[in-house]
């Protein structure tokens, strides 16, 4: 279980407890948090679950693989803290994670 803070581009915060072994994307979708579209449902095929990971957290996460980096090329305004939230698996270690959503996903 991890407490995750999702921040919309308007700065509206959503703090939810997300169970282990689902993804940060699923945590948002299951809690009806706006700003993460996840059109492809988590198969890393659409780049519409793009988030900016808080910079204190970015290096604590498992590194992204090549496929994710490729998909991020298509994301809306990616930066060096960009990740696809469907690739971030929740575990106790992510307790306190903060992610921000872009102003839109496409």
């Amino acid at each position: 279980m991890a407490k995750i803070t999702y921040i919309e581009h308007t700065n509206k915060e959503h703090i939810v407890e997300v169970p282990n072994n689902i993804t940060v994307m699923e945590g948002a979708v299951q809690n009806n948090i706006p700003g993460i579209d996840a059109d492809c449902g988590g198969s890393m095929a659409c780049a519409t679950c793009h988030v900016y990971v808080d910079k204190k957290w970015f290096n604590k996460l498992e590194k992204k693989d090549e496929g994710e980096e490729d998909m991020l090329d298509m994301a809306y305004q990616p930066n060096k803290f960009s990740r696809l939230s469907c690739q971030l698996l929740v575990s106790n270690e992510l307790d306190g994670l903060i992610v921000r959503m872009p102003s839109k996903q496409s």
Partner: peptide, 13 residues
């Protein structure tokens, strides 16, 4: 530049 071309893949609308 005269033109810009963007190739960022497809999105579903």
């Amino acid at each position: 530049t005269d033109y810009i071309l963007g190739f960022f893949g497809l999105i579903m609308k």
